[in-house]
């Protein structure tokens, strides 16, 4: 089946079994290995990508379902100002250890910040609760997101992607 969608801002087209996992198509057909497989059952969030503005686990989504959709992975998001802010505040907050969950958590943070410019700690924890991290205990990640939202509010670049 021919499947067309927008990937990181570029129109793409491929012939594929529509039941293949979006995760495998992204990693294998497009070489986007920032999208990680941690569990393959939608529990850990390491494979999180954006469909439009919504965070989805790409391991549970058949590629046929993204026909015509707009998909953003960490590889696309990292070209933005908001990524640079998040990467910096994650480093300042000590939010990164082994790093395997990190791209998914960066995408979950972006999904939150797109909708909520100044989230509370509880809202951040709620938004990240689908992304498991075994290294940090989460508080330092939450701190990274808080810092990013402050920077973005202060530098007036919130609306820019």
């Amino acid at each position: 089946m021919k499947i067309e969608f927008t990937l990181n801002g570029c129109p793409v087209s491929l012939s594929a079994d529509p039941l293949r996992r979006l995760l495998d198509v992204l990693r294998e057909d497009f070489g986007l290995t920032g999208v990680k497989e941690g569990c393959g059952e939608g529990e850990c969030g390491a494979c999180s990508v954006l469909l439009g503005d919504d965070l989805i686990p790409s391991c549970l989504v058949p590629v046929g379902n993204v026909q015509g959709a707009e998909i953003t992975t960490i590889e696309g998001f990292q070209k933005t100002h908001r990524y640079r802010v998040l990467s910096r505040t994650f480093a300042e907050a000590g939010a990164v250890q082994c790093g395997f969950c990190t791209p998914g958590i960066v995408m979950a943070s972006e999904a939150l910040l797109r909708k909520n410019t100044s989230p509370t700690e509880e809202e951040i924890r709620e938004s990240l609760s689908g992304n498991l991290c075994r290294c940090t205990g989460y508080s330092m990640i939450v701190d990274g997101v808080v810092r990013a939202s402050k920077v973005l509010s202060e530098d007036g670049t919130y609306g820019n992607v």
Binding site: G34, K36, L86, S87, G99
Partner: peptide, 21 residues
């Protein structure tokens, strides 16, 4: 005094290469 971890940005960016990559 904390230094910026050398591996932090590569891991955020998804460019750190694990065996599956």
């Amino acid at each position: 005094q904390s230094a910026v971890r050398i591996d932090s940005d590569d891991k955020c960016r998804g460019t750190a290469r694990y065996i599956g990559d």
